[in-house]
Design a protein around this nucleic acid. Structure first.
Lengths: 357, 357
DNA sequence: ATGGTTGATTTATACGGACAAATATTTTAC
DNA sequence: GTAAAATATTTGTCCGTATAAATCAACCAT
């Protein structure tokens, strides 16, 4: 709940910004505001006192209160409550849902989102972190960049920690830093999915994974560990690893080569749905049918994965909810309340891109 | 003569500077100071309140008052080069692409994006605008909220203009404000698309349009004007109008009713691809085939529109490019260079959701 | 020892009242 | 009409009181 003086302050401030009271105008008297807001003189005076500190008004004893020239250069103090959000990509894929979830929560607490993306590049991550610090964000939500590789920006993260700025990681995290994080259990989920393909009698499965973020590595490990539980067929597994900086065309070439061979895999486990959708296109160009000839599975349950033909078998995990949880956690952290890390267990959704061998 | 609270303030401040109270030390309680200076609690609180504003002390409710690190860097100059971006939705649809395009450009010029969304609600737009001003953004990129309706926030926009803050509108704009804008030529494009349906011998076409944003209104007008050019059949057109606040289920109900009738329309023109995809689902639930029984067209060329079954006939317009152009324009505007409004002419893409009647 | 509960302490918010000081307005005196 | 004086208005300072919220310290049960 908001305090009364904050309500009064906001009310008057809004009228000033809206222009109801113009620069230089005489404001209503304290008694007027007392009646208008139904509060005591103390409360009004506290509100206008802060507005005076923020240079929105000035007061003349005996004369009245007046709107200050608040529009001119007030570089000095900015009362901006901001939460910094750093992700690898803004537009791609599931991030909009996450960002939207964050926004829904933090905007209700009066915070804005200062957004930055790293294009999965450590140098850009560094720039983003520095800019966030310069902008005096009160807290940070970060999706680590190339989380599977050593991070050269740990020095800045440590500075941020020492400055007492709360940091929350999403999707992955760094073991060296003990910030809380919210992520999905990629390894176990991919394991279950691969296991499902085995029950469909697939033995030779191609895994295609992006390995410069830790989610991709976990998914790949899930794939591999599934095979290790079936030592008789584990030699049949094939894996294509790629980095986010690689050209997609090159990756598809490698997949094409593998799928063109005599004894090609009968199923493909993809890093995510986006890749799966593209791989299905590649497969069809080889005159193979999905799922009759090749089963394809993805990850994430991208919102349109059920509408494409064939609809995708995949793993669903919360997206907007992750954002909402992240927003709630970061607000708690700002208020110095304790916060627990959260792990989501993705659920398998069987659709039409998979079939018995 | 000095006021009492000034005396108290000076007294405490002197002890801090002299080192009687060291940085981090707990100060005496308010009651202590009341006795020490022989004043009321109000006076003590007023004194320590100002000391807190001057960063000499900090207070913890229930905990006590402590000497702040007043000797360190007093002025933490905030280097916040920020561009505010206000859209109706963050996650939905094509906005991520636009935001990503903006980010690509402005981040290269050292700017961060302060993001806010309005959920297509005027009240929230107002809050967003005020927050942006409070945060000292150097420029604003705004997608108008409910742009087809009168905007109650024009007063703030005018205030922003008077303050010399550059504003750029995307997707739509307000005629009352002469800010530059970047938008697509929705009317003509929808006209061409409807015309195409006529060439496919469709005569009875249902239009489903969202009418609280001006894009939707323009699209609907394109649809209508197309019919007006064919007066012989214009009585055959049907239109379902809805607002963003309406429940989708209700809209689908109305569509269902129309499509269940004896002589139902043979084609449906949808506000956008997202709606088209859902409408195809509705149509199929009525045991009608797309495109054999009913042709469906969308708008926007949503990225997965070519992957769904059937792939969508639609109008493509730049999305990320719109963001890039917006970014470039806003940087120019910050540099006080002249900027022209930009109009994109969407291109028609014929896919498999349409067929000859 | 430890973990939870209770009560005391301390700051935060809020009300009402009183008088002082500066300014604004009206009245009075010329 | 003008200037001075009286009055009213408005902000500034200050007090006492009350309740809420957060923290701290002591206690008790396990």
């Amino acid at each position: 709940m908001e305090t009364k003086y904050e309500t009064v302050k906001k009310g008057i401030k809004a009228d000033i910004i809206a222009g109801t009271y113009q620069t230089g105008d005489k404001l209503p008297t304290e008694s007027d505001f007392m009646k208008q807001f139904g509060v005591s003189r103390y409360t009004v005076r506290r509100a206008v006192g802060e507005l005076q500190n923020e240079r929105f008004i000035y007061r003349i004893q005996g004369g009245g209160m007046f709107v200050d020239d608040w529009q001119s250069e007030r570089v000095t103090q900015v009362n901006n409550k901001m939460v910094g959000v750093i992700t690898t990509h803004i537009a791609d894929y599931i991030f909009p849902n996450i960002i939207s979830g964050i926004d829904r929560i933090v905007s209700n607490s009066g915070y804005s989102i200062l957004l930055s993306n790293t294009h999965n590049n450590h140098q850009k991550e560094r720039q983003s972190l520095i800019r966030m610090l310069d902008s005096n964000v009160e807290a940070l939500i970060v999706e680590p960049t190339q989380s599977a590789l050593p991070n050269p920006n740990l020095d800045i993260y440590k500075k941020i920690r020492d400055a007492g700025i709360p940091v929350l990681f999403i999707n992955s995290h760094y073991d060296e830093l003990d910030f809380p994080y919210i992520h999905t259990n990629d390894l176990e989920a991919e394991q279950r999915l691969t296991e499902y393909l085995f029950t469909q009698e697939h033995e030779k499965i191609l895994g295609v994974f992006q390995v410069d973020d830790s989610q991709g590595v976990h998914r790949m490990n899930g794939f591999v560990q599934s095979y290790l539980k079936h030592p008789k067929i584990s030699y049949l597994s094939e894996i294509v690893m790629y980095q986010s900086s690689d050209e997609m065309a090159k990756i598809f070439e490698r997949v094409t080569k593998i799928m063109s061979s005599e004894n090609h895999p009968t199923a493909i486990a993809c890093y995510n749905d986006k890749l799966a959708i593209q791989i299905i296109d590649v497969i069809r160009s080889l005159d193979l049918r999905v799922p009759e000839d090749v089963s394809v599975v993805g990850f994430d349950d991208y919102q349109l994965s059920k509408y494409i033909e064939p609809s995708l078998t995949t793993l669903v995990h919360p997206k907007e909810k992750m954002g909402i949880d992240a927003g709630k956690s970061i607000i708690k952290m700002i208020n110095k309340e304790p916060v627990e890390s959260i792990t989501y267990d993705p659920e398998m959704i069987i659709r039409n891109s998979t079939a018995r061998k």
